[in-house]
Amino acid sequence: MSSSKVQYTEDQFIDGLRTGNNEVLNVLYKKYYNIVLKFIVNNSGTQEAAQDIYQETIIVLYENVQKPGFELNCQLQTYIYSIAKRLWLKQLKKNSKTFLFKDDDENEVVDVTEDMTVYETKEAELEKMNQSLAELGEPCATLIKDFYVQKLSMDEIAEKFGYTNADNAKNQKYKCLQRLKKSFFELLPVEQIERK
């Protein structure tokens, strides 16, 4: 069993999440899992579904605390429960038209519509990027990520992918990026990006 049990205030949780503190994330994750697990399992879900919904819930929270001026107007537990409930109801609705739904009396629910919208918009964009990267295939996807995300130099990329020199690697990167661009913007019209 875990040896040290660090206690954090809700503000410390939010701050830690905002600054990417792994220890805080770890404690937070463990602290609220059972609430979501109970809720999902009591509402036609498996433990596996609970795990997925809980992780998505934490992502929603994580995305929202990054927004400048984010303020939690309720207990963190209430917020997490409300988000998880929204996500789970959405999934239940997708699977069947009718279902019985039992609210957990111990947990209040707050309106998280706005936070969910922020998340869903971003999620749609990320989904398109993932899809484009998958279509792009290898070695292009890795090459692009190595250059733009890992910030490898063209020399390093040439070495890693076996191109004769940096110029060849650069040409390859150019071709790969053109393809990625094409597929990403076909999926996502430019107007849609600008509207955000």
Binding site: L89, K97, F99
Partner: peptide
């Protein structure tokens, strides 16, 4: 707690 019936329809009802 309370059992709420969401979206009335004749499709299958899932209960744990």
């Amino acid at each position: 707690g309370k059992t709420v019936l969401v979206a009335a329809s004749t499709a299958a009802i899932v209960v744990l």
